[in-house]
Amino acid sequence: MQKGEDNARYGLLIDYEYCTNCHTCEVACKKELGLKPGEYGIKVLEDGPRQNPSGKWEWSYLPVPTSLCNLCEKRVAEGRKPTCVHHCQSGIMYYGPVEELAKKLAEKPKMVLYSK
């Protein structure tokens, strides 16, 4: 959990297959960074809903960290997870060195890796 001494690049891995758009990450981030209305450190984007030719519905949400995101450096220094990772209701966000997260990225489809 602790940021290493190795100057490794850290990031967030998000399994967006199960993002439900519950807004928890957005608001947890606002509270942590003390952001005003209209400001976001992470924002959930939407694709869909629309029906694929097979009849299956396509409807995805994707949390996107903004330039205000500092990967919760204060929390991380205290030994906590970034607040979005801690509180995500689907439990689909992971924090760590991007090289480690990249290995996890290979485990299943519909994941994205953000580097900071």
């Binding site: 519950c22 928890t24 608001v27 947890a28 509270k31 509180h87 995500c88 209701q89 439990g91």
Partner: peptide, 13 residues
């Protein structure tokens, strides 16, 4: 809830 919270508690203050 295993650490998770929704907006109601996140926005408690």
């Amino acid at each position: 809830n295993r650490g998770r919270l929704c907006l109601r508690c996140i926005n408690m203050i």
